[in-house]
């Protein structure tokens, strides 16, 4: 009798632990973890080189691995990365789908704050790209603990404001971002300067020129072809407004060459039109 009571007591004591343990796979299979990590690294490298299709394929493979080992944290991270790749490939529908899955999964698992904030930011960014009103998502992010997240949220918020024509508010956000960004993120510093350049393009052309040239200088330092092309295109537009046709043409041609190298046909067509109008 006593033995039965002991046995029942032990079962009651360890039952929650046994149930928790059975909920997940008993063993993570370390070699699969290694494979997944390797796939993610390769995918990131491919994305940095502009090989989006390769990055997509590798991330899809990594997603399968992450599900096999039931690593929710990695799955969220992979879904987030997939969302970014799909936006780069102009497949917004798939991007949103990935993001929604990541958001759903994030509710079931414990995620680091930074990853959670990254999901919200991505959602706001896709909202901006699809002309949806997702400004409110950034209200919390501009007070994030991470300075980097604060800076890029302020910049994205400024883009929302500029689109709505609230230039004064946008300028306020951008100046705040610029003052906060003390060597935290050079990419975001260049983004802020570029946005300020766009903002001043009509009211103070000289100031706009200064901001844009600074942005170009930083992007050249970082060797980001896409951003360099963007800076050059905006600069060319500004020179066109200043009726400096020589420089305008020069910058348009340089931007055209970079877009051609990156295979962005849409951008090439846009520049060709600008060149024809010169």
């Amino acid at each position: 009798m006593k033995n039965r009571i002991k046995f029942l007591f032990l079962i009651i004591l360890f039952l929650p632990l046994i149930l928790q343990g059975c909920y997940r796979a008993p063993i993570e299979e370390p070699y699969r973890v290694k494979e997944m990590e390797s796939l993610i690294k390769r995918a990131n490298r491919a994305f940095e080189k502009g090989n989006f299709k390769m990055a997509l394929s590798l991330y899809e493979e990594a997603l399968k691995k992450s599900r096999i080992i039931q690593d929710d944290n990695s799955t969220v991270m992979i879904l987030l990365s997939l969302s970014r790749i799909y936006t780069s490939l102009d497949k917004i529908y798939y991007a949103e789908k990935c993001l929604n899955s990541a958001e759903e999964l994030s509710k079931k698992t414990y995620l680091p704050e930074s990853l959670f904030e990254e999901i919200i930011f991505e959602k706001a960014r896709i909202g901006f790209l699809t002309n949806k009103n997702s400004e409110a998502l950034l209200d919390k992010l501009i007070y994030s603990d991470s300075p980097y997240m604060r800076i890029k949220s302020l910049n994205l918020l400024a883009r929302f404001k500029m689109r709505r024509g609230a230039n004064e508010e946008a300028e306020e956000f951008l100046n705040k971002s610029l003052s906060m960004n003390n060597e935290i993120s050079k990419i975001e510093q260049a983004n802020t300067l570029r946005l300020l350049g766009e903002l001043y393009a009509k009211k103070n052309k000289n100031k706009s020129l200064t901001y844009l040239l600074r942005a170009l200088s930083i992007d050249r330092e970082l060797a980001l072809p896409e951003k360099i092309a963007l800076d050059m295109e905006i600069l060319a537009g500004l020179y066109k407004d200043l009726e400096d046709k020589g420089r305008a043409k020069d910058y348009f041609l340089r931007a055209f060459e970079i877009w051609k190298y990156l295979g962005r046909e849409e951008n090439q067509i846009r520049i060709m039109r600008e060149l024809e109008s010169l």
């Binding site: 990055a55 994205l156 990419i187």
Partner: peptide
């Protein structure tokens, strides 16, 4: 502790 693998973070001026 999980290994530090970061997702592809988008910046504020990304497409």
């Amino acid at each position: 502790k999980k290994r530090d693998i970061k997702p592809l973070e988008a910046d504020s001026y990304e497409k």
